[in-house]
Design a protein around this nucleic acid. Structure first.
Lengths: 202, 202
DNA sequence: CGCGAAGATGAACGTTGTTCAGTTTTTTGT
DNA sequence: ACAAAAAACTGAACAACGTTCATCTTCGCG
């Protein structure tokens, strides 16, 4: 009776991996990436310090795991409802991106703060998930510029996403009075409107 | 003969501060912010480990000092030649920003990677220098939108700068083949052109 | 049961930023 | 000019960190 359940959906190893991942996620989403400590994780996951290193190469790989989950959640938060028409959809996307960044700021920041050592390149599975995010702007761009070739559109979606990211990133940096909460929304709305206008007058 | 020189232009204390600052600058501009170690600094500056803490509160304040210098250099690299006319000047600014980010990548990254603990807010002298950077986009914006009120223009300059920053930041992230060197320049040029077009059709 | 293999443990190591009692150097008072 | 006071500098010591590894525990199977 060594196997209480005939076929575990997940091996014990995977359960531990899951617990560590969830513990790390909890820390990152409250204290941010800088507050992530190996000993804290092991305490929360109810395991020994060394156990972390039996399921993850090192903390960098663990963070990548957390970030992958964040990417999935972010993608869900940005999910296009039904029809994705031009500017309105771009506005919705940008607004939803700002919303997620606000609501889950530490977790969102971890996506871009974390940089792994230069000798280890980004895993392919991670790059793929990240690219799916950029691709969300492609559909609304397609209705604004129907004649653009897909590769050019892909690049343009990336650029537009990056620009919105920049506005949100530096906009959230200063939370003090000068830039009040509502101002950032207005900035972003105006920015997207200007971009859409510029795109139509091609 | 306690004073070999009647009046030193800088006290010994300031000379040491300068040496530490320059050592830190050298490290950051080669190995990046993550490669900055207190012992490395003290060795390069030719002083004891503790000496750093006699001229800087902690490493965070030292990094702020280095970043302030970077801001000055960046500002110089973006300096407007003479007349600052509309889109052409915006194009030049964006291109120069990308150029500086490329040429001095670790130093430039340190500007945005460094985050000081939440209990200590940004010093005013640093915020002022940073705002001067954003303000560089105001003059060219003024010739595109002559009727805009100065406060609104200030905000718009900030937004536009943030957007360009986002494009450069995420554009430099992937240095591998897919996004070749020239592509990023083209992306940026196209982006600024679209923005200018949208702004003119107000 | 027993026994090889795999997993988990936490003490220990090397490296980090920061502190502080002690020493040296500079400034001050007369 | 010189001793006393103040300031600056030193580097050993400390706490906290990520990571490793000899050791112990548990699992899978005959």
């Amino acid at each position: 009776m060594t196997k209480p359940i005939p076929e575990n959906p997940k091996g014990r190893r995977d359960q531990m991996r899951e617990r560590v991942l969830e513990a790390a996620e909890a820390v990152i989403s409250t204290k941010g990436l800088a507050g992530l400590k190996a000993r804290d994780i092991s305490a929360r996951a109810g395991c020994a310090l060394g156990a972390i290193y039996t399921v993850f190469e090192d903390l960098d790989e663990l963070i990548l795991g957390v970030n992958q989950r964040t990417l999935t959640r972010l993608e869900a938060a940005l999910a296009t409802p039904e029809g994705a028409h031009g500017e309105a959809e771009l506005q919705r996307l940008a607004r939803a991106y700002l919303g997620y960044a606000r609501d889950e700021e530490p977790r969102w920041r971890a996506l871009f703060e974390h940089r792994l050592p230069p000798e280890k390149p980004l895993p392919d599975w991670y790059a793929r998930d990240r690219d799916r995010l950029f691709a969300l702007a492609e559909a609304p761009l397609a209705s604004l510029l129907p004649n653009e070739e897909p590769p050019a559109r892909k690049l343009r979606a990336r650029t537009l996403f990056s620009a919105v990211h920049g506005v949100v990133l530096l906009g959230l940096e200063e939370k003090f009075a000068p830039t009040s909460s509502g101002t950032l929304e207005a900035q972003l709305r105006e920015f997207v409107a200007t971009m859409a206008r510029g795109l139509r007058e091609n």
